[in-house]
Structures are given as structure tokens and as C-alpha cells.
Design a binder for these strands. Sequence first.
DNA 1: ATGTCC
Length: 481
Amino acid sequence: MDLRDLRRIHPYLWEIPAGYREDMRIPCRIFASKEMLEEIVKDRSLEQLVNVSALPGMQKAAYVMPDVHEGYGFPIGGVAAAAWPDGVISPGGIGYDINCGVRLLKTELSHQELQPHLRRLGERLYMAVPSGVGKSGFIKLSKEHLDKVLEKGVPWLADMGYGGEEDIDCIESRGCLENGDPSAVSSHAKGRGIDQLGTLGAGNHFVEIDRITHIYDQETASAFGLFEGQVVIQIHTGSRGLGHQVATDHIKVLLGAMRKYGITVPDRELACAPLTSPEGKEYAGAMAAAANFAWANRQAITFFIRKTWHEVLGDQGGHLSLLYDVAHNIAKVEEHRGEDGVRRKMAVHRKGATRAFGPGHPEVTPRYRNFGQPVIIPGSMGTASYVLAGTESSMELAFGSCCHGAGRQMSRHAAKRAVRGERVRDDLHQQGIQVYSGSMAGLAEEAPMAYKDVDAVVDVVEAAGIAKKVAKLRPILVIKG
DNA sequence: ATGTCC
């Protein structure tokens, strides 16, 4: 993509007009500073965005966030909405890690209070939350109970003793998409997932203990229960092997089904089917089931973190309450205004993008409704993370969405060539950050240098008006696959 | 992201 093909709408919003390529149905919009855009045009992410704008039923505009980079079919950091019921659903717009997401637990302790216990806590947490590719967990589910997880998500797991109503209330969609369909999930996918509840996985997934170093918005922070110096815990993981297999299985089916519906796409990786077709509904049901599994996974990890926390800290530890749990790889049917200003149902695909509903939205729990939905933005290892709040203007500017993290700027391969894992670990230790990881190669792939500057990414989404800063976090201890 | 190639 050439910078000259882009029109500047605002200082932090750019557009590729719908006439740029013949098959575009809607324009493409990019949230970025000029400096970021100069980097973004270097990979294929904007070509991929233009491809997305050509899918049947696309509404208003296809968006990318400042943390955008190339992905499978759709760019990571992308948001696109297909009209209900005439549009399509595309697994490439959701990603292989269905409902990859982040939750944040609030502690009642300050950094100083935790410090004497940190080493023991890190060692114990590393044992309590199994990490690494293919690792299994401590929960033994029967096939019948796995189906319950796939169908009912966190509310079922909470009934089994792994959480409470106050957790459910602070999860996007209350931890359950109602169309979760266990019968659309292959036995192969179920076999991969059955022993993986309560496991972290690998790659950029982590459990991280942070401290709040800055409050930007005192009123919202108080409503969210956040204060300066507070220790908080982030959990970043998804649907593990189960979600990956669901994506693999259904992409194959959809590739074969497109001809039947007369759909042509500019890239095979955009395989899709009409939302109301049997194949589209089957994928949507399987995706929802995998999403429910991912929420249940983050809930199970929360259970084991709470258990470990209390074992190490006793009564002094206090309660670990959930701030919020956000999905950043998911498609959901929501109501939004189209380009004509008329509200209609759409299947909003967010791939490496976070829902950021504004104040007053009925989908946001009453406890936060006056302030906007909490949005959790994890940085790369060793860098800051943020808690943001959704804004009213995000609803109009980007279907109520914002960025999801720092965003890669270096491939995994390039990162491994550039730095050794031992060096990354030692550098983090120098900064006072404890690292527990079973894979030095994994640490190299996730080195801070492999990621964009999260501070700059968050500054752009705030300046563009799609989220506002509430709190800044700095890492203390990180557990990785 | 992923039992990182059936």
C-alpha cells in the first residue's frame, strides 16, 4: 500500500476510499498517527483490510486499530461488520484462537505489601497454571461436562464451584454466547480441549502481576475499584487447542461451501458463508462454543490463582475480584448504525480488537454503566498495560471497538534471530520484573522489541476518541508458556 | 495462536 492512496480524515484517522479497488463495497479506515502509518503500509495488513471490505454485506467501513499487523486473511487489529441476515461470517475475521482475551483481577494489596511474598507466589503460580504448547490442566471433565462448558460457559462452571455471580457480571456477554453448539464442535476438537481447562498455552499468553502506576481518571478509576499502587493480576489466554481445531475444521468446510452460495473472495483465507446458511450457522455455533470454552478457561485459571493467592498470603491476601473480562478474537451480533444512520443488526467481527462500549450501553453491567465498559490493553512483556473505558463516540467511530494490545512489529522468526531468550529474561530481571517461563525460544519471540510501543498505540485510540485512559500498569512478575 | 506437518 502507498501512503498516497490514503486520505487523512482526522489527525489519527485515515481512509482508503471505496473507489480504490473495484471490488470494495465500503471504505477502509485506519486509526493511526502519521508515523505509525509509515510502518503499517510496509506489510500486507492494509491490502488485507481492502480484501475484507469486498466481503458480502459489509457495513459502513472496515477498520484497523493502531496495533494492526498482518494476520490470516483479515489483519490482526481489524473490525468489520456484516449485515444481519444477508451478510457473511468468516473465521479469518475471528482468528484461530477463538475468544482469545484478557481479564484483570483486582487485589486489596499494595506493591509494598506483596513484595516479601513475591518469590513464593511466583513459584506457586507457575505450578498452579500449567503453560506451554499442548499442556493439560488439573480439571478432569467428562465428555458430558465439556458439552456443558461449550453450551453454557462460565455460569455453568461457576455452579460447579469455580466462581460466583459477581464474576459472571463482570465478563463480556456474562461469559456465555447463547448459540454455543457442542454438536458443531468435532470430536477431534473436543479431544484436544477436554483436559485443557485452566491452562495458559504459549505465545503471547501470560499471567502477569502488575502495579498501578498512574490514574488518569479518578472518578472512573474509583467506580472500577482501582487505585494508585494497587496490585492487579492480568490473565491473557484463549480457547487453546479446542478453538484452533474448530477454526481448522470449519475453514475447510467454508472453503468448499462458497461456490454453492455464489461467493467469490479476493483471498482464500477469507473463506466465509452467509450468516443464515447451514455452514455459516454451524461455524457460528462452533465459534460460540469455543468462545464459551475460552471464558471458562480464564475463569478456571482465576480459580487456581485465587487458591494459590490465599495459600501464600492467608487472610492478609484479601479477595481477588474481577474488574472485567474482554474478548478480542470474536464475532458477535450487535446493533449499530450503518452509513445511512439507521440502526440494524450486524455480525461484528473483532480480530485483535476489543469491544469498547460507551456509557449507558445496556450490555455494560449496571455497576460500570455510567462510566463505559472497562477495556483491558495488555502491553508486551516488560512494558506498560492500560485500563481504558469505552466512549460514546466509539459507538459511532468504530462499532464500539478499540485496540487490543501493543501489536507485533517483528515476526516470531525475526525476533528469534534478533535476540536470545536468556537475554530477554536477564533484561527484565534488571528492571525488577520476575519471569517464569518454560521456553527460552518463547521469551525471544515475545521480546519487547518485537512489539510496537503500547503507549503510542493507546495515545492514538484516546486521541481518536474511541476509548479514554483510566489507569496505567507496570509489570512485577510474569508467567509465560 | 497451534499436540508449530498426516
